[in-house]
Write a protein that binds this DNA or RNA. Structure first.
Lengths: 108, 108
DNA sequence: CTTGATAAGTAGGTTGGCTACATGTTGCCT
DNA sequence: AGGCAACATGTAGCCAACCTACTTATCAAG
């Protein structure tokens, strides 16, 4: 999968994995890897800046904790984040329809 | 639809519209608009550089002509372009599976 | 004779995902 | 005891591609 295919689609994916349970960065990486069937193996230089961006934008809130001597920053959805996730899902549906309308994969 | 959602997905879409008939830039714009149900209205500053990029990469070949006093540059798929389109379609299927695996839209 | 559709392009800005690097802990294996 | 893998978080700086804004030109309609 090409790198920049992700552009603009990563944010809703991150929000989605913390939708039902708050997770820390490393756990978010693992969740994305698992949910994507091993395809989405984000470098830390992608994930951590993205998390900070989403927090700065008000979609995530974070909290430090220490578990087994390791420091974790755990992220959870804000109410703005919940709305953003919902609209992100809707946008995905639109986007998918656009791409498939153009690609017409049935006529490949 | 956000601007950078398109990133990395535009190339196969352009190749797809010239798959069965060569078209000039303006006609490609119209074809994309029509096939996307009016959603994909590319600015010329996106399309024309993209076409040049695809030609430079060897996926498209172009030819000038004049129709009704207007100059057209008509693009058609090369054999490399045909292969690229096929792999682009495959990548789209993978990408869609990744996003939907993470978003799990059924549980929205 | 001006507007809108047709037709093609460039310059420059923005941005987000990437590589590469930095830092530290825990626990297993030898 | 030494080393490595996994756990955990982060930054600096690069770069590609999509965008806005602009330019040029022809033709038809009003």
């Amino acid at each position: 999968m090409k790198a920049d295919a992700l552009r603009g689609h990563l944010d809703p994916m991150i929000l989605a994995v913390v939708e039902h349970e708050p997770l820390h960065g490393y756990a978010i990486m693992e969740a994305l890897l698992e949910r994507s069937g091993g395809e989405l193996d984000l470098p830390t230089g992608t994930l951590y800046p993205a998390l900070r961006r989403l927090e700065r934008a008000g979609y995530l809130a974070s909290e430090w904790s220490t578990v087994g001597g390791r420091k974790r920053r755990t992220y959870q959805l804000t109410s703005a984040g919940t709305k953003m996730l919902a609209s992100g899902k809707q946008e995905w549906v639109t986007f998918r329809a656009v791409v498939e309308g153009v690609l017409r994969p049935g006529q490949a």
